[in-house]
Computed example of a mutant assay.
Amino acid sequence: MPVYQNKTLTNVLMAVEIDREVPPELYNAVAEVLAHIYRLDQVLGKRIK
Results as ranks from 00 to 15, higher is better:
M1H: 12
M1C: 01
P2R: 05
P2E: 06
P2D: 00
V3I: 04
V3N: 02
V3D: 07
Y4L: 11
Y4T: 05
Y4M: 07
Q5Y: 08
Q5W: 06
Q5S: 13
N6A: 03
N6K: 03
K7D: 12
K7T: 15
K7C: 05
T8L: 00
L9E: 07
L9H: 03
L9F: 04
T10V: 11
T10K: 05
T10A: 03
N11R: 08
N11G: 14
N11C: 03
V12E: 09
L13Y: 13
L13H: 08
L13S: 00
M14L: 15
M14F: 13
M14C: 14
M14S: 13
A15L: 08
A15V: 00
A15E: 13
A15D: 13
V16Y: 10
V16S: 07
V16Q: 08
E17F: 08
E17T: 09
E17R: 11
I18S: 12
I18D: 14
I18C: 12
D19W: 14
D19I: 06
D19F: 14
R20E: 15
R20K: 14
E21D: 15
V22E: 06
V22H: 10
V22Q: 02
P23Q: 13
P23W: 12
P23V: 15
P24Q: 13
P24S: 14
P24I: 03
P24E: 15
E25W: 04
E25V: 12
E25A: 08
L26T: 04
L26M: 13
L26C: 05
L26G: 10
L26H: 01
L26W: 00
L26S: 11
Y27M: 07
Y27V: 07
Y27Q: 08
N28E: 03
N28F: 12
A29Q: 00
V30L: 10
V30I: 02
V30Y: 01
A31L: 08
A31I: 00
A31N: 06
A31P: 02
E32G: 04
E32K: 11
E32C: 06
E32Q: 04
E32N: 10
V33E: 00
L34H: 09
L34M: 08
L34V: 05
L34Y: 15
L34G: 01
A35K: 02
A35L: 09
A35S: 02
A35F: 10
H36L: 10
H36K: 01
I37R: 05
I37L: 04
Y38S: 08
Y38Q: 07
Y38K: 01
Y38E: 06
L40W: 14
L40A: 03
D41K: 04
D41L: 08
Q42P: 07
Q42D: 12
Q42N: 07
Q42K: 01
V43M: 00
L44M: 12
L44V: 07
L44Q: 11
L44G: 03
L44W: 05
G45Y: 06
G45E: 04
G45H: 02
G45P: 01
K46Y: 06
K46H: 01
R47F: 14
R47S: 02
R47G: 08
I48S: 11
I48F: 02
I48L: 12
I48E: 04
I48W: 09
I48A: 13
K49V: 13
K49M: 06
K49S: 11
